[in-house]
Design a protein around this nucleic acid. Structure first.
Lengths: 178, 178
DNA sequence: CAGGAAACTTGCGTGCACGCAAGTTTGCGT
DNA sequence: ACGCAAACTTGCGTGCACGCAAGTTTCCTG
């Protein structure tokens, strides 16, 4: 695995993107979405407001991106944690259930934030669902080729059982994929 | 006093300049001047080697600049600390003496570094003497106009008495300046 | 509902950071 | 003394960050 190291420019770009996401989420959690100015996020991330809009084309996108990124890494981790011999179907459902049952630091609050605010919800649905990317790559790694699966899961009174039920319909698709 | 705040670009430029100076001095003190690569300084400051040479045109300049900057601020502080009623002559000599007698953290080591290494000495003398700028501004503030004074003081076995002696010739010039 | 202020988003020109490649210096081993 | 290798310095082209100004949205107030 040649760990292709990106050059300095690339690293800095990623760093400011992450700084912006992080700052946006933190501020939104601290004082509520309505009280966060673009200038505040930019300042907290150490860049100009103009630069914010070079990375995100709306005020909400950064917040959504932050949550999305969090969940992407968590899903990837959860999938990687599954032993290889576990059937694909079970691995996927377990990984997703894991997210909703064992939340990280501000994960719950962030989700609440997004599901509460209309603008955030809209921005969230604009992005391809947060769970798609890491799942497809994980699945692709298991199988030989790339299949796409699209999941929309909005947690309303969510319990592990509810989740399993909601994910059950996917089982045949995943099985036939192999 | 309208504290004219420089814009973000300016602040960032100053920041990286300072980061470079700081990194250069720290590394030079840690491992000796000979074992410091330009790339190391740049990396420690978070910029590319190319950028180092946008700020300093030689490997030694950053180290020298670091010491120079340190001394500039210390001289400025020392001059500011003098009560206004103290005669100009005494204020200047006291400020300079203060530098050599009550050194800061790595001030001594830094000076030793510079006076030891030939390349550093050369680079140091290339820059207008470290003490000039803050002194002239301080003096200018006291008088109404701008006078220039050039001091070359290389501390060889320096003692307060030696310093006072060396600075004595300046007294008449400073007195007539008023 | 009209008017206006504050915040947002975007096009544009400028300046700095970067990577690259060429030319130069430095220091070392033979 | 010679040649080589590593490090340094600099010109050049490209891309990103910034400031600015214009157009738009949003929200509040009369």
């Amino acid at each position: 695995m040649t760990q292709e190291r990106p050059d300095l420019r690339e690293r800095k770009k990623r760093a400011t993107q992450e700084a912006l996401r992080e700052a946006a989420l933190r501020l939104a959690l601290e004082r509520g979405t309505a009280n966060v100015r673009v200038g505040d996020i930019a300042e907290a991330a150490g860049v100009s407001p103009r630069t914010y809009n070079n990375y995100f084309s709306s005020r909400e996108q950064a917040i959504v991106a932050a949550v999305t990124a969090q969940r992407e890494t968590r899903i990837a981790e959860a999938m990687a944690a599954q032993p290889a011999h576990v059937p694909l179907t079970d691995a996927v459902t377990a990984a997703i259930v894991d997210i909703y049952t064992t939340p990280g630091d501000d994960d719950h609050a962030a989700l609440l934030l997004i599901t509460t605010d209309p603008a955030l919800r809209h921005a969230f649905l604009d992005t391809t669902a947060a769970i798609e990317a890491p799942l497809t790559t994980a699945i692709a790694q298991r199988l030989g080729h790339t299949d796409r699966c699209l999941l929309y899961t909005v947690p309303t009174g969510s319990l592990p059982g509810l989740l399993r039920a909601a994910l059950a319909p996917l089982a045949p698709a995943l099985d036939t994929a192999r």
